[in-house]
Amino acid sequence: MGLLSSVLLLPLAPVRGVVWVSDRLIDAAEAELYDPGVIRARLAALNRALDDGEIDLAEFEREEERLLDLLERKPIAPGGGP
């Protein structure tokens, strides 16, 4: 980038910084969402909730299916591509 374009784009630096930070936050959230260890822990907690009577069988099956779908899903590559 040339000196002139750097000077002209300087006012946008805070916006680029916010976009960069938000991209890092999204990456971290997706990594945690699709982490098999986290999903397995949530499945274990779901089983305990069913055993303790905190949730009914229908709610358990819905949530279990959603978690198993997450566990089987391949994480999306950075940039949204396959």
Rank of each mutant, 00 (worst) to 15 (best):
Arg42Gly: 03
Glu32Gly: 09
Trp20Leu: 09
Gly81Pro: 05
Pro75Asp: 02
Ala49Thr: 10
Val21Ala: 03
Arg16Cys: 07
Glu72Phe: 02
Lys74His: 09
Gly79Ile: 00
Glu54Gly: 06
Val21Trp: 01
Leu8Tyr: 13
Val15Ala: 11
Leu12Asp: 02
Val7His: 06
Arg48Gly: 04
Pro14Asp: 03
Val15Arg: 09
Leu67Arg: 04
Val19Gln: 04
Ala31Ser: 08
Val21Tyr: 01
Ala77Glu: 13
Ala28His: 11
Glu64Tyr: 10
Ile55Tyr: 05
Ala41Pro: 08
Leu71Tyr: 04
Leu67Ser: 00
Ala13Phe: 15
Pro75Tyr: 07
Glu54Trp: 10
Leu70Ala: 01
Asp52Leu: 07
Ser5Gly: 06
Arg62Leu: 05
Met1Tyr: 13
Ala58Asp: 04
Leu46Tyr: 06
Gly17Ser: 10
Asp23Ser: 01
Met1Val: 08
Arg42Glu: 14
Asp56Trp: 15
Ala29Ser: 09
Leu57Trp: 12
Leu4Pro: 07
Pro82His: 15
Leu43Pro: 07
Glu54Ile: 12
Leu68Gln: 00
Phe60Thr: 00
Gly80Ile: 13
Ala77Phe: 13
Gly2Asn: 11
Ser6Ala: 14
Asp52Val: 08
Leu25Phe: 10
Tyr34Ser: 05
Gly79Cys: 03
Gly81Trp: 15
Arg48Thr: 02
Val18Cys: 03
Gly17Glu: 05
Glu64Ile: 02
Glu32Ser: 08
Met1Gly: 14
Ile26Pro: 01
Val19Met: 12
Arg40Trp: 11
Val15Tyr: 13
Asp23Ala: 01
Gly80Val: 13
Leu10Ala: 09
Ala45Gln: 15
Ala77Asp: 11
Leu4Trp: 10
Ser22His: 09
Arg24Ala: 09
Ser5Arg: 06
Leu25Gly: 02
Asp35Thr: 12
Ile76Phe: 14
Arg48Val: 03
Gly81His: 13
Val19Gly: 00
Ile39Thr: 01
Leu70Gly: 00
Glu54Met: 10
Leu8Arg: 05
Leu68Ile: 01
Leu25Pro: 00
Leu12Arg: 13
Gly53Ala: 06
Leu70Phe: 04
Leu9Glu: 07
Gly17Thr: 07
Asp52Gln: 04
Ser22Thr: 12
Arg62Gly: 02
Glu72Ser: 03
Val7Gln: 15
Leu3Glu: 14
Arg66Trp: 10
Ile26Met: 02
Ile76Thr: 12
Leu33Asp: 06
Asp51Gly: 07
Ile39His: 00
Leu8Thr: 03
Glu65Gly: 10
Leu8Gln: 05
Pro82Asn: 09
Leu8Met: 14
Ala45Ile: 06
Glu72Leu: 02
Asp56Ile: 06
Leu10Phe: 10
Leu33Pro: 01
Asp27Arg: 00
Leu70Met: 05
Asp35Glu: 03
Glu65Ser: 09
Ala49Tyr: 14
